[in-house]
Nucleic acid binder design. Structure first.
Length: 297
DNA sequence: GTCACGTCTGAAAATAAATC
DNA sequence: GATTTATTTTCAGACGTGAC
């Protein structure tokens, strides 16, 4: 597709627009002539540009941004903008337009907002590859499902790259960010949920996360309403209930859940469930037999 | 973050019940 | 009777919690 005042210009339109949370409307690339200007104007969609080479100026909410290779600027719907190619070294850029109820929120998560619509310092070749992948999918027109899934996938990788470049902003700007000690508790919970079969010392775990045992226990209980020991016991016993449905012996189930002593396992199981492991298993069998009997009847 | 103290955990030994 | 599995009791050390 030709476009005046451009050395090169191409655009791929998405023929399968859905009412999805996020829609890719079109994607393309251009190499305008020196001093080529768009705007002042507004768009009804979100338009993301990444500069592949050269430089230019983006004017947004009264502020002027000088942008070069690897920089990205984002135009939000309904907000006045303009941008202009440099007079000696005009830029070339790629773009993708999106819309949908989730689009703004997704951009915000990557650190792109109406007050900060710039991402700097990307590898231009890498980003160009992602834009090109979106273009190629749109060009192939392989049906609604393939096009939607593929463009969505490539676009999310693009967003991940923006988020990586904005990691310094995200680290300090998130209102709901976790404190260091809360993050330590989250790490401990993940450890409990995946390593429950291993012996655990709360003292060592707290030390490995950089906290004293008593302080760590306090924070853990504030967040989970359970002590670390109670929490891991709950994880272990829930896992034990699942394993008791198999043919493993009570001792094997206990070992698989982090109880090195089958006798202690039995005691704990009864404390939490009101039944010994064998009684619990017997209850499961009776239930299964009852169901089988009902099916026969 | 530390201390003191009461509580809980888990290993060991003894015992009981079930199965062959 | 031998073996396997589950339960109970005991106690040292680890843990949880309130006060500081």
């Amino acid at each position: 597709m030709d476009n005046p005042e451009h050395y090169e210009y191409r655009i791929q339109i998405n023929p399968y627009l859905l009412n999805a949370d996020l829609n890719i409307i079109f994607a393309g690339a251009a190499r305008p002539e020196p001093l080529h200007k768009i705007g002042p104007a507004v768009h009804p969609y979100i338009l993301i540009h990444t500069v592949e080479s050269g430089c230019g100026t983006f004017v947004w909410q009264g502020k002027s941004y000088r942008l070069g290779q690897g920089d990205t600027f984002v135009i939000f719907p309904g907000v006045l903008f303009s941008y202009e190619a440099d007079h000696t070294e005009p830029w070339s850029y790629r773009w993708v337009a999106i819309q949908g109820p989730n689009a703004l929120e997704m951009l915000k998560k990557t650190g792109i907002t109406t007050t900060d619509p710039i991402v700097r310092g990307a590898d231009p070749e890498h980003l160009a590859g992602l834009f090109e992948s979106i273009e190629r999918v749109l060009e192939q027109q392989s049906g609604e499902t393939v096009t939607t899934l593929a463009t969505d996938g490539w676009f999310r990788i693009l967003l991940a790259e923006f988020a990586r470049l904005n990691v310094h902003k995200l680290r300090y700007s998130s209102a709901g960010a976790l404190t260091d000690s809360e993050r330590a508790v989250e790490q401990a919970i993940r450890w409990f949920q995946t390593q429950y079969m291993l012996p655990v010392s709360i003292d060592k775990l707290a030390a490995s996360l950089g906290y004293h045992r008593t302080h760590f226990t306090k924070v853990f209980k504030q967040l989970t309403s359970q002590s670390p020991k109670q929490y891991i016991n709950q994880v272990r016993l829930e896992r034990a209930k699942e394993l008791l449905r198999t043919n493993l012996s009570v001792e094997q189930v206990g070992n698989s859940c982090g109880f090195t002593d089958p006798l202690y396992f039995s005691k704990q199981f009864k404390l939490w469930t009101g039944e010994s492991p064998s009684q619990f298993r017997e209850g499961l069998r009776r239930g299964a037999d009852g169901n089988a009997g009902n099916k026969k009847a």
